[in-house]
Amino acid sequence: MFLGRVGLFIPCYIDQVYPRVGMATVRLLEKLGVSFEFPEDQTCCGQPQFNSGCFKDAAKLAGKMLRIFKDYDWVVCPSGSCTGMVREYYELLLERDKESDDFKHLVSHTFELCEFLIDILKVETIDGSFPHKVGLHQSCHGLRGLGLGVPSEQVLPGRIGKVRRLLESLRGIEIVNTGRSDECCGFGGTFSVFEGTVSSFIGRDRIKDYEQAGAEVIVSYDVSCLMHLDGLIRRDKKPLKVLHIAEVLDGAAS
């Protein structure tokens, strides 16, 4: 399939703190035969600023993103929340560009990695095995913002969701069901710092859900949630592991 130019959008914290997730994304796309570019100028989508209410600061970064990625046919990002930032909220930041073709193109062609695989590349299964019990953490921004599945509040078909279906194609994988299927992990961006106590309390509850369901690994398409959960897991010295879905798919497919 001819896709045109594909730009890889690597969120700032993946670039600086979780390069292994970025590299897993790179290898996975390579295995799937996707040609892409990583524009070196990119830094951050502006979510931390936006999330704190500093729209003017966030707008500067959003403007930079638009300049960098406007000439790509597709933009792919291994993060639900950063993708959601572009798709859901850039219109609040780039008021002046809102009606421009570049803006509309960027917003409608920025995809979270799993979405890109499933909806654009039409990947239905991944050939590989991952013989573990997995708790799939559907981050709120991916689930409710991007619609990667149907959240438990809504009465609509498609509850299983795209991501779960993709994961389930791996041999040996068992996806456990938690009591609260899509409860927030409590990270919430700057919330995790502004309201550290509540944030950690919610996170521990979520970890308990996964533990009780028998999960060995928590897998998500958002590293930010995982960073928060992992921080709690390691502090409490629990045996659980966390992995980004790109790491799982890349590792399984090798």
């Binding site: 703190v17 390069p19 790179v26 921080g231």
Partner: peptide
């Protein structure tokens, strides 16, 4: 940094820091 004085570290460990950034690794790759 994993102590009570930093807000993050009060109840969570910080991520282990990698040796280099994604962009550096990617360039090498």
């Amino acid at each position: 940094f994993n102590n009570r004085l930093t807000i993050w570290g009060r109840s969570r460990d910080l991520p282990k820091m990698p040796a280099q950034s994604f962009r550096a690794e990617y360039r090498a790759h």
